[in-house]
Amino acid sequence: MRSVDVATITKVVARLCEEANFYLEQSVHSAFQRAYEEEISPLGRDVLTQILANAAVAAEKRLPICQDTGIVLVLVELGQEVHVSGGSLYAAINQGVRDAYQKCYLRKSVVNDPIERTNTKDNTPAVIHCRIVDGDKMRISLMPKSAGSENVSTVKVLNPADGWEGIKKFVLETIDQAGPNPCPPLIVGIGMGGTMEKAALLAKEALFRPVGQKNPTETIAHLEDELLDAINKLGIGPMGRGGRITALAVHIEVFPTHMSSLLVAVNLLCCAARYKTAEI
């Protein structure tokens, strides 16, 4: 067993919150530079210019990339040889969120209850998904998830007979109807298979894959290319003002499923694509 103290976890979570909110992920930044070269719409290019300029100003002046500093999503891969010592894992993560959002002047956007809606004033609780994996390491992936793109994300139960064509149609409908609302250019995370919550979680996990990296399975990578091409033919463009770059990337994750089910989830990530990962 390897022991990891909760204080260490709190510090790492706080650091990830801070870095994610101030510094655009490198692979995303490079993708925006390529998008600027490829975009033919003048209004679209203007948006991309602002996105790149914003990343520089945010980093230099330590201002949040976006005022929606999100509800914090945390994916924990906990090695089964790790013993978390000194307290509760979930409390340690929430303390890290609390510390960072206070210290770094980040917006507190979390409300206590979906109906009553009183602000919790410290941006907790985070949404935490923990998975036990082999080994003695702990991996924390964190995303301050904005509402604009989350609010137009979708899950659907299709008929197995609908197949890939049915999935493709559903994804295109989701992005077509969302139009400008999720702040395109987007990263499109897709989860296929499993059960309803499994598909949704796969779609979320897919957003963490660096832009430019394809699914290791060649057939799935091909579907990612096909779908990205179809999405960018919709013409929505940066901020929905018309253009060829509606999405920077499509990331598909799959899981085996029931012989009678075809689950698909589409999770969208806005142009202020913020996420960081650390290993303890």
Partner: peptide, 9 residues
């Protein structure tokens, strides 16, 4: 329309 996600600038 203002551009979403460029709040720092």
């Amino acid at each position: 329309g203002a551009v979403g996600g460029v709040a720092a600038i």
